[in-house]
């Protein structure tokens, strides 16, 4: 997988979530994702950015345009240096929340995207990477 371009955005307050959403929207439109897939990617980005802000106490997001021989995609990385997630399996369950959401953030984002990866270390932080692919045209 090759990274064609990327932009980085810090997530320090609620307005930043909006900025992340708008950047992601721009890239999904550029990649000609269908409207449904655009909506799914923007929603996943919003969920994950909110996690970074609320649970990770802020951090950053990296929005990448990635390519493989047969396909092209958008990869989103959300990083924080917060408390980490002690019980990853549980955090991925629907309805488990320690914040203000519905507890659908991680599991929901996983369902909305094609690839999902999470690394978390207690007291060091969390890094979530998600990718959605589209056929090259």
């Amino acid at each position: 997988m090759a990274v064609k371009s990327q932009e980085e955005r810090s997530i320090a307050n609620e307005d930043d979530i909006l900025d992340v959403r708008n950047s992601v929207k721009r890239v999904t439109a550029l990649l000609n994702f269908s409207l449904v897939n655009q909506t799914k990617i923007i929603s996943a980005a919003s969920e994950l950015a909110r996690n970074t802000l609320e649970h990770g106490k802020g951090g950053k997001s990296i929005i990448q345009l990635v390519t493989e021989p047969e396909r092209i995609g958008i990869r989103l990385i959300f990083e924080d240096t917060g408390p980490g997630i002690p019980d990853l399996a549980r955090a991925l369950e629907d309805g488990y929340s320690t914040g203000r959401g519905m507890g659908l953030g991680l599991g929901g984002a996983k369902r909305l995207m094609d690839d999902f990866d999470i690394e978390s270390k207690e007291n060091e932080g969390t890094r979530v990477t998600v990718t959605k692919w589209t056929e090259k045209n």
Binding site: Q38, T39, M102
Partner: peptide, 14 residues
Amino acid sequence: MQPAIAITITELGI
């Protein structure tokens, strides 16, 4: 509600 939103929030679990 836009159809794309209905599809997305259902998958999200809302």
